[in-house]
């Protein structure tokens, strides 16, 4: 157990915890874009930058990313110092220039008082390269997309920029994307994502689309669940079972 100071308030922290974890647990707001509790921290967006110092640092301070920095005894953290706010603003200004189309980024930038306008990208992309989709996909074990190329050309793409072969159409990437960059189109029968079209399993009672067949097959193989769970929608499951339960309770 160690004690640290965040914004002049004392908190207990476990060894190995990051500044962000301690702050969030104590309802101290540190904005993030690339952080997700269930995924390995990468420190890509730098929005969670905080200023740290220590009693024996002779007044020197350092800007670090809260999502990665492990707490240490006596650490003094400022989440809203002048340097922190300035950097956050710059990060958001830069992202605004990168994806001017993203309302999420614009709102965030405005909220932090956007000041500097940089040369805007005009490719219409909303991707901020937070890697959330890539990490989530890897977490599910699919590895259908990855961060390819480097530098400014870095982007999320399936292998060879073609259709994503190992994609199962689960849609997690689109769900987790903070800016809505990933395009996913659902119809009653199919889902289109990453240049692939997936057929839905439909509820055998009402015909509502459930999950994609590929996702079902993936889940059956990797999650060992009986086949029938996938063939009825939640509402129909409940409706069917209610009758069954009613008979049981008689």
């Amino acid at each position: 157990m160690t004690q640290i100071l965040i914004d002049n308030r004392k908190f207990n922290a476990e060894e190995g915890e990051t500044i962000l974890e301690v702050a969030r647990r104590n309802q101290i707001d540190i904005p993030t874009l690339c952080h997700h509790e269930a995924l390995e921290a990468v420190g890509a967006c730098r929005l969670c930058t905080v200023e740290i110092t220590g009693e024996d640092w002779n007044g020197s301070t350092k800007l670090v990313s809260a999502c990665l920095y492990p707490v240490e005894e006596g650490l003094i953290v400022q989440t809203r110092s002048e340097g922190v706010l300035r950097l956050r603003q710059t990060v958001l200004d830069l992202l605004m220039a990168r994806c001017p189309e993203s309302t999420v980024i614009r709102d965030l930038a405005t909220q932090h008082g956007q000041v500097t306008e940089y040369q805007q990208f005009t490719d219409g992309s909303k991707c901020i390269m937070c890697y959330l989709c890539v990490r989530a996909c890897a977490k599910l074990g699919c590895h259908a997309i990855s961060a390819v190329n480097r530098g400014t050309l870095k982007e999320v793409a399936p292998p060879f920029h073609e259709h994503a072969e190992s994609c199962v159409g689960c849609g997690t990437c689109a769900t987790i994307c903070p800016t809505g960059h990933i395009e996913m189109v659902d119809t009653a029968e199919t889902r289109t994502i990453w240049k692939r079209e997936f057929e839905f399993v439909t509820c055998k009672v009402c015909g509502e689309p459930l999950i994609t067949k590929a996702y079902r097959d993936y889940a059956l193989e990797n999650r060992r669940l009986p086949n029938d769970y996938y063939t009825v929608c939640s509402a129909c499951k409940k409706s069917e079972l209610s009758g069954h339960f009613a008979r049981l309770s008689l």
Partner: peptide, 27 residues
């Protein structure tokens, strides 16, 4: 635990009783 959810929606499919509803908006 919302913060840990990546939105894969497997739980909805897995529940044999249909008691999980996946909220597309909130993910």
């Amino acid at each position: 635990v919302e913060e840990r959810c990546i939105g894969c929606a497997l739980c909805e499919t897995a529940c044999p009783f249909g008691h999980i509803h996946f909220d597309e908006l909130k993910g």
